[in-house]
Structures are given as structure tokens and as C-alpha cells.
């Protein structure tokens, strides 16, 4: 019987209060003056888009903001990610990105991801993995393609 996850329990994990809170009151949403890297990505499936702007100094992300439209998972992931990456180096961010992917594959919350560990519930909804990864994809390009 092809339904996602395990009914109500999976849904409760997916839409837990911490995630909905970031969705309703996103942190670090808006434009970033003097950004050193900006990148936008689109999810062609739904037309959602996110733009991530970072300010890097001496190889450290000192500020990061996002703009865009999208579902609660994408918005919450972006909001949490902006918090997570402050004060991190590029190699630290790469390692976190890897851990995030592993969390989506395995479904076990990973405390090293801070609040983002709340997104472990997305693991049970493969159709939504893309939503949670979208801000990471934008972020990777801002770091790689520094202007």
C-alpha cells in the first residue's frame, strides 16, 4: 500500500513545532549587504526558489541570509541553515552538508547539526528530500563561486 511513512507519527515528526516555528518566523531572512557570495537555485518540480547570500571574512562565514518562496520544509531548512553556518569555515560546512545528507538517508537525528537535527523526520518522506536540500545547494554555490 503506497503511502508515505507511518501515518500520523511520521507526519508529527515532519511537522514538529520547531520546524513550523522556523517556517512561521524565519531567522536571517532578507538581503545581505556586502555579500561575498550569492546564489539562487530553483526546484523545478514545484517552482520553489531560494537565494542564499553569505559574507565571508578570512575563510569564515560571518553572516548568511536567505530569501525565496517555498514550502515549510524548505523555509525551515533555510532558516536553520543560516544559523548553523555562522562562524564556520568552508570545510566545516562541507562536513555538515555530508552529515545532513546522511541524516536524510538514515533518519536518525544528528546533534552536530544543531536545530537542523529536527529535520530528521524528512527522511521518511523521500519526495521531500529535495525541499530540505535546496538551501544547502544554494549555499554550496556561494562558497564555491566566491566573487
Amino acid at each position: 500500500m503506497p503511502t508515505s511513512a507511518d501515518g500520523g507519527a511520521g507526519l508529527a515528526a515532519l511537522y514538529q513545532e520547531r520546524i513550523l516555528d522556523h517556517y512561521r518566523r524565519p531567522r536571517h531572512k532578507g538581503a545581505l549587504e556586502r555579500a561575498t557570495g550569492v546564489h539562487s537555485v530553483k526546484n523545478p518540480l514545484c517552482g520553489d526558489d531560494v537565494t542564499v547570500a553569505v559574507l565571508e571574512r578570512d575563510g569564515v562565514v560571518v553572516d548568511a541570509r536567505f530569501t525565496g518562496t517555498g514550502c515549510s520544509i524548505m523555509q525551515a531548512a533555510a532558516s536553520m541553515l543560516m544559523e548553523l553556518v555562522r562562524g564556520r569555515t568552508r570545510s566545516e560546512i562541507d562536513a555538515l552538508s555530508q552529515r545532513f545528507d546522511e541524516m536524510l538517508a538514515g533518519g536518525e537525528p544528528d546533534d552536530s547539526l544543531g536545530e537542523m537535527s529536527a529535520l530528521a523526520g524528512v527522511a521518511a518522506f523521500p519526495a521531500r528530500h529535495k525541499c530540505a536540500r535546496l538551501p544547502w545547494r544554494a549555499l554550496a554555490e556561494t562558497v564555491d563561486g566566491r566573487r
Binding site: T3, G10, L11, C46, D48, S72, I73, F125, C131
Partner: peptide, 14 residues
């Protein structure tokens, strides 16, 4: 409510 969020919630109800 974003359509993807709605669709996921409906999916759980089959």
C-alpha cells in the same frame, strides 16, 4: 499552506 506541504499531509491519509 504550501501545496507540497498539503500534498504530503494528504498522502499520509492515503
Amino acid at each position: 499552506i504550501h501545496p507540497h506541504d498539503l500534498s504530503t499531509m494528504l498522502d499520509v491519509d492515503g
